[in-house]
Amino acid sequence: MTGLLADLAIGAAILALAAGMVAARSAFTATAFFIAYGLLLGLAWVRLGAVDIALTEAAIGAGLSGVLLLTAAARLAARPVATERAPGPLLTALIALCCAAVAVAIGAAILSLPEPTPSLAAEVAANLPATALGNPVAGVLMSYRALDTLLESAVVVLAVVGVWSLTPPGGWGGFPGPFHLRVESGPLALLARLLPPIGIVIALHILWVGKDAPGGKFQAAAILAAMWLLAWMAGLATPPRIASRRLRFAVSAGAGLFLAIGVAGALAEGAFLAYPAGWTKALVLAVEFALTASIAVALALLVMGPPEEEDRA
């Protein structure tokens, strides 16, 4: 009973926020809705028995995305972009009708899904000992579907390349993102000094428990990225220039190591991404740590954005 009530409350709140977001006039308001939406989505994931996803949603959905969109809204308010013409009332109504039809069709499809639901849960459980991991989601990510994880880490590297490729003339090789003045006093300064050490400890904790319990590299990486961004926004930490070999190596190292281990598996075991017998645990841990570091750096760089016009050497 309490469960159903909670589901209804969460669902109604999410729907209200979504509608508010789409109807919002200003980008700042819409972003405030978005952050609240991300928080509630985190609760929804808890109700769906997916604590791993709840952690990720809290870190990436509400945290990093919220900050990215907030700063973007602020910068766009200062320098607006030409918007396309809004569709007229008739066309808007037509679009609304079509979207409603799509939603209804999807709803009907969900209601018609077969019972009992096909599931791989039993197979995941049966093979989990071979992965040397206790958390089934981590088992899927690092063993059964390791290829997806590897490719995703490559996608993150590619996104950094893509964002950097947007550097305006004269900015190439400079410091990523806008410049932030050093904040010397006030609550912001306090927070920016206090939070990162705590955050790093929490991130390491979440990475470490991720082997056997909800948590793991994405969540830890998102927290680490947030901490770096915090220090950056308070002007306490200047990121390296994007020309820096070390910075670039840090972005690529995780995916590179994963690829190397995948190839080693192909040579030793005859299948790409097969972990050589007896080495599974050590290699999985090595990949998890390297990926955490690389993804954290990449996520932070993505939020910072490309260098700005003038190089402030």
Binding site: L151, A154, V157, L158, F249, G256, L259, V263, A266, F272
Partner: peptide, 27 residues
């Protein structure tokens, strides 16, 4: 079932992806 030359498609994907990952530090 795995086939004898099954490693070729893997290589076809891995080489360019590895190249992209390496491109950043290589310059």
């Amino acid at each position: 079932a795995p086939t004898p030359w099954g490693m070729l498609p893997v290589l076809a994907v891995v080489l360019p992806v590895a190249g992209m990952v390496a491109a950043l530090p290589l310059g």
